[in-house]
Design a protein around this nucleic acid. Structure first.
Lengths: 222, 222
DNA sequence: CAAGTTAGTTACATAATGCAACTAACAAAA
DNA sequence: TTTTGTTAGTTGCATTATGTAACTAACTTG
């Protein structure tokens, strides 16, 4: 039956760094693959965790100190071959967070890697990250998902760069702004602008409070 | 750690019956909830199953005798409260199959229920089915997914009914046919028509062989 | 062979999208 | 103080996608 099955949760924590989609890895402190970079993860604690989301939040807190604004179940990876310890189940979540929260914090053992230039990772973690990128690419096409990768306030050109990093393609400026208007999740921060050089400063926006914990979907994609 | 966690696979087997999206339930032969209708499922066999998909195929074979043309992982439901036996993980798959394969076969203990008129089911199976319906509704909007619910050959009006059942809304005939043309997964069965009454018979189509095992996606939805 | 019914197509109005060219607002150099 | 360069943001228009109504086609039944 299931006595010998290892039950874990792993987390793909994604951020934008230098306009590129990046994944956060943490150095493993135990065998197998001790001292190697891998997705942050851990055992499910049947005593402490009420469900998988609980476990994901706990593990993320332990490994990164963060409670990210977006956390969604991605997929479950399981089988006999993926972990040297034996038959294992990993319920994988993916989290989106503003890069500054990671880069500014002192998180020992956390490293950031562009998702399109990863080296070979332990377990099936490359495959897992690829699945996360697929998911975010898909959802970015028709939702406010990438907004969770921006900070509290941001300009539309900045948000467009984030969408482009998620989608892996450049977008038309006019169409993008029309779609953001249609989405209706943003509100201008009155008077606030971002001056980033010798040119016209950009209006700053933030997520309307009612959308801080809820995705908004477009009827017809970007 | 994870010694006490129960690991199972459950399957949401969906079909179209009387132009409605329906789920296939099977009578449980063991406790808990013995003799009640529930999603077909079973323990993962770490000895026999190489991975979860393996387990899903085995369980589906045992409970229904089918190898469905479409089988995808839906989501994992886990926690302390969902199963009276204790902390449990259920990796849920959803399967699509031509209704005739179930209705014609002699599958004792299998029953068919419209997904929008279900009674209260054991475990969290109502919630699981709702998640499956959400998924199929979403994917039907921009993919060839509902084709797996049709048989070998089918007319376009029939396929439109299937799409409508999946989406829960009626579609425009001209637009639907344009989109199916754009999808490009169908080929006319030359000379074959379906005569279903005192009116013009409909051209029959089938999935092109290269799409029997691969979803095709629309760039811009139905 | 006329009537009824569904299959399938055509023509056209309306809406969505993409592109190019515009104006706006700033800093820095002249 | 004016000019220049650069990015922000808007406008107008051509092109494409979509929805609707009205059409023709092909069958069965009376």
């Amino acid at each position: 039956m299931s006595e010998s099955i290892i039950s874990t949760v792993d987390i793909v924590l994604l951020i934008i760094k230098d306009d590129r989609l990046c994944v956060t890895l943490s150095k493993r402190d135990k065998e197998p693959y001790a001292n190697q970079e891998a997705l942050p993860g851990g055992y499910i604690h049947a005593q402490d965790d009420r469900d998988c989301l609980d476990a994901a939040v706990r593990i993320l807190q332990q490994k990164t100190g963060l409670l990210p604004p977006y956390l969604e179940q991605l997929k479950t990876f399981a089988g006999a071959a993926r972990d040297p310890r034996g038959w294992s189940i990993s319920v994988v979540y993916f989290a989106l967070v503003d890069a500054d929260l990671i880069l500014s914090a002192t998180n020992p053992g956390l490293t950031i890697w562009p998702v399109d230039a990863l080296r070979r990772l332990p377990f099936d973690h490359n495959e897992i990250i690829a699945a996360a990128v697929d998911r975010i690419r898909n959802k970015s096409q028709y939702s406010s998902l990438p907004c969770y990768l921006a900070g509290e306030t941001f300009s539309l050109p900045r948000l467009q760069k984030i969408y482009e990093a998620c989608l892996g393609e450049t977008l038309n400026k006019v169409s993008f702004r029309r779609k953001m208007d249609e989405l209706g999740v943003l509100e201008a921060v009155s008077g606030q602008t971002e001056s980033a050089g010798a040119h016209r400063p950009a209006q700053l926006y933030r997520l309307k409070s009612e959308f801080k914990n809820q995705l908004k979907l477009l009827v017809r994609g970007l």
